[in-house]
């Protein structure tokens, strides 16, 4: 049901843009107004969410250590997994963000007769995730060739490298396949893996279907539905959007507007959804804090003023017993009245 709904939602989006863009005057709505609004919501929403997070303090030093902490000289410190300095934290974070290090650790547990529990390395999720995210990243960077004039060398190089196998005309990008395939694999995993299937929400299926559709419409536009895909006009529009002087010259095919509308939907959806893990991963206290909490005091801005049950109160209650047992006391017992 949840995944069916996600498909339905994306189909509706496609119909809105496909039909809507064909109505006279509407290309400006879908080609100019919608992208501007989407970008504004994306940027505003993203900043808003990060500011909201940053507003809450980090009261305690709650790093998760995944290796030996810094202690005695002869005990080998695992600098990446129990970082002690800012540089070590940065290294840990970079590995997490660029190599998905925690996911790489993933294991699959099974319970057999006995009972006997086994754990085996399971890197599928890591692999699907890496393929999907890196493809997505490169796809986004590649698209800069449409928005920037002249095209920066890095972007041109990526474009060349990504299509170096020269399959088809124009040659297919590897990352297009990576993005579509990655989304499909992550989606299938949600259906096949029983744990994940049970916990998945519409919020989990919808973005995958949406991104899948974005990839497919992009590929269709490049390879199959080329009628009305005037790359000059598209570039003119894209550069116009960036320079705040957008123009739409001639007719651009519906598939273009569908593609753009789906991307706009993703941008609008982004700040209000789990996709904010893009920002959150940088701020997660268990990963971005140093494990030096005994060497350097961490400050809690709202540290409440709470005193312990006082020693004086304790001794008052137990003084007689303490004196009897020969435990030193601060105040001697009152002189016995005979």
């Amino acid at each position: 049901m949840k995944y069916a709904f996600s498909f339905l939602a994306v189909i509706v989006l496609i119909l809105i843009a496909g039909v809507g863009s064909q109505i006279a005057g509407m290309p400006y709505f879908f080609g100019v107004f919608v992208p501007y609004v989407a970008i504004a919501i994306f940027l505003g929403g993203f900043v808003y969410r990060v500011v909201q997070w940053a507003k809450s303090p980090v009261p305690f030093s709650i790093q998760t250590t995944c290796g030996q902490g810094k202690s005695l000289e002869f005990i080998k410190h695992n600098r990446l997994e129990a970082p002690d300095t800012t540089a070590e934290v940065v290294a840990r974070m970079l590995l997490e963000i660029f190599t998905f290090r925690s996911l790489f650790r993933n294991t699959k547990s099974e319970i057999h007769d006995g009972p006997k529990i086994t754990y085996e390395s399971s890197k599928w999720l890591w692999l699907f995730g890496i393929v999907f995210h890196y493809s997505f990243l490169i796809v986004v960077i590649r698209h800069m060739r449409l928005f920037l004039n002249p095209v920066p060398e890095v972007v041109a190089f990526l474009d060349w490298a990504d299509s170096m196998f020269e399959i088809g005309v124009p040659s297919m990008y590897m990352t297009t396949a990576g993005l579509i395939g990655g989304a499909a694999l992550l989606f299938s995993r949600r259906l096949v893996n029983r744990h994940v299937r049970y916990i998945s929400l519409v919020n989990d299926y919808f973005p995958l279907v949406l991104i899948f559709a974005i990839g497919v419409t992009g590929a269709l536009m490049r390879h199959f539905l080329r009628d009305g895909i005037d790359i000059v006009a598209i570039k003119q529009l894209a550069v116009g959007l960036v320079t705040f002087s957008p123009v739409i010259n001639g007719e651009i095919g519906a598939i273009f507007y569908i593609h753009v509308f789906l991307v706009a939907t993703l941008l609008v959806y982004f700040p209000f959804s789990k996709l904010m893990h893009l920002g959150g991963v940088f701020l997660s206290p268990t990963r971005n804090m140093k494990n030096n909490s005994r060497a350097v005091r961490h400050i809690n801005p709202w540290n409440p003023d709470i005193k312990p049950h006082s020693y004086a109160g304790y001794e008052d209650e137990f003084r007689e017993f303490m004196v009897d047992a020969g435990i030193p006391v601060e105040k001697e017992l009152p002189a016995q009245k005979d």
Binding site: P59, N193, V196, K274, H277, S284
Partner: peptide, 20 residues
Amino acid sequence: KFRSLKIFMDCCVRCGACAD
């Protein structure tokens, strides 16, 4: 009071790595 709570509420993608 706890940034950890906000981040952990917002960021989970339900990938299921923690499940087992």
